[in-house]
Design a protein around this nucleic acid. Sequence first.
DNA 1: CATGAATGAGCTTTCATTCAT
DNA 2: GATGAATGAAAGCTCATTCAT
Lengths: 198, 198, 198, 198
Amino acid sequence: MGKKKGPKYNQIIDAAVKVIANHGYHQAQVSKIAKEAGVADGTIYLYFENKEDILTSLFEEKMGNFVQIIRNQITEDLSIEDKFLLLITKHLEQLEQDHHLAIVTQLELRQSNTDLRLKINEILKGYLVLVDELLTEGKSNGFFLEDLDNRLARQMIFGTIDEVVTNWVMKECKYDLSGLAVSIHKMLLGGLRSKPSR
Amino acid sequence: MGKKKGPKYNQIIDAAVKVIANHGYHQAQVSKIAKEAGVADGTIYLYFENKEDILTSLFEEKMGNFVQIIRNQITEDLSIEDKFLLLITKHLEQLEQDHHLAIVTQLELRQSNTDLRLKINEILKGYLVLVDELLTEGKSNGFFLEDLDNRLARQMIFGTIDEVVTNWVMKECKYDLSGLAVSIHKMLLGGLRSKPSR
Amino acid sequence: MGKKKGPKYNQIIDAAVKVIANHGYHQAQVSKIAKEAGVADGTIYLYFENKEDILTSLFEEKMGNFVQIIRNQITEDLSIEDKFLLLITKHLEQLEQDHHLAIVTQLELRQSNTDLRLKINEILKGYLVLVDELLTEGKSNGFFLEDLDNRLARQMIFGTIDEVVTNWVMKECKYDLSGLAVSIHKMLLGGLRSKPSR
Amino acid sequence: MGKKKGPKYNQIIDAAVKVIANHGYHQAQVSKIAKEAGVADGTIYLYFENKEDILTSLFEEKMGNFVQIIRNQITEDLSIEDKFLLLITKHLEQLEQDHHLAIVTQLELRQSNTDLRLKINEILKGYLVLVDELLTEGKSNGFFLEDLDNRLARQMIFGTIDEVVTNWVMKECKYDLSGLAVSIHKMLLGGLRSKPSR
DNA sequence: CATGAATGAGCTTTCATTCAT
DNA sequence: GATGAATGAAAGCTCATTCAT
């Protein structure tokens, strides 16, 4: 019950990231996380309801930040095009900064049961809301077609970036990720075709 | 050993799909699958090496010719544009045909940790090779830009379609999936922008 | 029920000896014995009540012979001393003849549960009766002391020979076993002491 | 890990002895041992690596100084004859002290298949070394014949005593065991024959 | 007689969670 | 607050035995 207090809370979350990244989701026992965090097993339960709550909180904590940081960069004076470039760049940059976190969010946490994944999706909504705002803005000033399906567009944007990051993680983060932002941006906005149809 | 034959073999695989779809990957115990299949627990082991073998076989059996079916539709006389439309359409159609199977392959099986993931990647590889061929063809006849990054393009195409399907599954397959093919196709080839940049 | 008939009966027993010798008691499944015997699993149960019955019968069959063969050699005209030498020699010779059988009776069958071992002891009684007869005969003609405890003497004789054979089996039957008969005979009859006590 | 301490450790070992003695090796499930020890199944695994570790530890703990205890009694001032009497007496006395333990070591533990057998042999080796020393000493001072085969003599001594104890256990420990020491001693040293051969 | 596919009871071990100290 | 020893439910797999053919 006494949730979210004290330095131990963050200690435990950071330990969870580390343990999951190094040992994999299915080998991340509570006792291992407690040991890594330097606390007793029971202490975990003073800060988290149960194991799933650790993972949910982990994602909340790290991804809550995530969306806010992107929002902070997207100032009103930018063109919609530049706003999208920023979205992509900051998305990639943040995951590039912390390889452990990237492994956890892109690979390991997806092995969790479906309930947890629904909660993760809940958190992802903040991201999707942002994308939606950009799409609506783009439509209103004629940058995007009026009849664009926001949901599909969102799925294309998120699906593409997510797939790029996942591949990067699976290749053991060996190459420059954020450097791909411009290319991705160009592909997403302009599509694959060399010339417009008609 | 891998006796693989007899009606029980398929009975068990179908039961596995059903149980996993209804109860989730982590709640799909062997005994539950056996009960659903109408056989004794031990009978499972006359047809499969172990639990993982059930899942691997399930995936192979059901998704083994996923790519081949798409390839069969893509005849040489089609334009590159139409070939992509077919790719998307057939991809969506196949998953739309069996909701249970879609749940299993899009959500549940991704929670596995093992050889199964490798099997999934194997299938995926065949898919990506096909996409690569289409991209190369499109480049050679000027439909795509010469400097297009094949890997990124592949990730955009697969990432987008996969995300669309996953969202459809998570919305409990309540809307028409293959009907989205045209819109997706338009977005992927033409991008989000209403007018081409100069 | 229809026990002890047909050539299959012996086939199965011989297969059991072979399988147990090669794979060990705990790895000697009924199906493995059936395969070795060239019959179906179910066929086993036409000749034996259950698995334990195979083992009991195996021992009966092979050890029944065993005692009879020794008895046949011990003719009445021999001295009690020579009778004992024959007992020991034939005991060792018979086990030396069939290494598989020796492994099974000396090592593997002793891992069976206590019930089976009680039945084995039952069969061993034939051997012990023979020893008893010799001891009694030896006492009556003054070769042995009147106050010799037959039970203890039997245990010394059997315990010694059994231990010698077991060691030979554990050393993988690499040396001449029956050649030890004279030494054993000398030790058992004369003891370890170089000179008699007063 | 091998935490080995605390009162539970001994509780569990004693429970194992009791359960194995009463129900037999093959019926001594972990859950039965846990229940007898008055702990939860899982608690077993805080003190032992696995089931085999219970049995190995049991044997080590209970029989670890079996040989040492005998050695402590055999002081240098004794005659070789008396030393052997002590060996036999202490061997029997130790097993006589704890009937449950005797059942376990003489009958049940021999049904095991694994490292445990190796552990048992380890203990046995210490015993055989001791016997060897006595034999060598006896030879050097003329008490034993120079040409006595140590290995065979060892096997006679151990085989005889072991057989006597096993028979006593199988007769449910109903008679006085250590009281047999003098008779056994007499038989082993002097043999069965009433008068020395010429 | 013979088959062998099918059965299903039985057991070790893991690990999230609790609670007395 | 903090501890960590203790808990006990849960699940994959084996194999002796049966019985319809």
